[in-house]
């Protein structure tokens, strides 16, 4: 009970099948010696292969977009960062208790588009702000003595230096949504300066930002410049701490109880060669 090849009027030669330009033709469609290979099925298979090709290799350039670009790319962003989670496992030591929300005056990235869709680069981020919500520090930092001079100066900052990957979902288009992942060295810095007693205490926590998960949207104005918003959640852990008093280190060592923290950052980015 074998199947009779060619007995149902099915085209049997490769020359009978017109291949579509730019889409690989499946071998079964070329051979065409199967009883199931009717023109409708062959068409469906072609469509399936075409869809798989597009999914695997990438979408074709949109006619209205500036087209994809490879090579050097950089971005500069500004925004705000909101703390979440815990700076350490000690009671009450939340990231928000140490650091208030911060202005991000510098979010600088330098790298390259290694393919039409994938960007790899280094990144430096700086956030600056005031002391956090801890009531003892807040009270100490308040300048409420009625004098004009600010006798107690408090400040806080955060830094991340690392690498990031971004994948463009519309790299050829005018509007390019993207997703990103980054890993970085993570620093949190706070300072209180008592000018009356001439005592400046600073503490810098350092660790790793294990995952900076980001989404963004670049509006590409040609192939040279772009602009768009980005939202990132940087999940990190401080592992070491260094305290200085008047510039002299009084402690430099590991944090006994580590914990997870996050910086939620919203920026506006200008992109060169998007």
């Amino acid at each position: 009970m074998g199947v009779e090849i060619g007995s149902r009027g099915v085209p049997t030669g490769a020359s009978d099948v017109e291949p579509t330009v730019g889409v690989p033709t499946p071998p079964s469609a070329i051979v065409g010696h199967n009883a199931l290979a009717s023109p409708r099925i062959i068409g469906a298979m072609r469509a399936g292969f075409a869809a798989a090709f597009v999914l695997l290799v990438g979408s074709p350039a949109h006619a209205d977009g500036p087209g994809p670009r490879r090579g050097f790319q950089m971005h500069y962003g500004v925004g705000v960062a909101v703390p979440a989670g815990n700076a350490s496992g000690a009671r009450g030591d939340t990231l928000g208790a140490r650091y208030a929300w911060q202005v991000v005056p510098l979010d600088l990235g330098l790298g390259a588009k290694v393919s039409d869709d994938l960007y790899v680069g280094g990144v430096l981020r700086v956030g600056v702000g005031a002391e956090g919500s801890d009531t003892r520090v807040e009270r100490a930092c308040e300048d409420d003595d009625g004098t004009i001079d600010n006798e107690i100066a408090c400040s806080a900052a955060s830094y991340q230096v690392g690498v990031e990957l971004r994948y463009g979902l519309g790299s050829a288009d005018q509007v390019n949504p993207w997703i990103g992942y980054g890993i970085a060295a993570d620093f949190g810095h706070q300072s209180i300066h008592d000018r009356v007693r001439a005592r400046r205490e600073t503490t810098t926590a350092r660790g790793v930002e294990w995952a900076r998960l980001a989404v963004g949207l670049d509006h590409r104005m040609g192939r040279v410049g772009g602009l768009g918003p980005a939202l990132a959640v940087g999940l990190g852990q401080y592992t070491h701490s260094r305290t200085e008093v008047n510039g002299e280190p009084v402690f430099d060592g590991p944090i006994e109880q580590t914990a997870l923290h996050a910086w939620i950052t919203l920026t506006v980015r200008m992109v060169l060669f998007p």
Binding site: A90, E201, S241, T243
Partner: peptide, 13 residues
């Protein structure tokens, strides 16, 4: 030894 002021600060002697 003076106790530090900031949350997260430590002193060791």
């Amino acid at each position: 030894l003076t106790l530090p002021l900031l949350l997260g600060s430590q002193v060791e002697q």
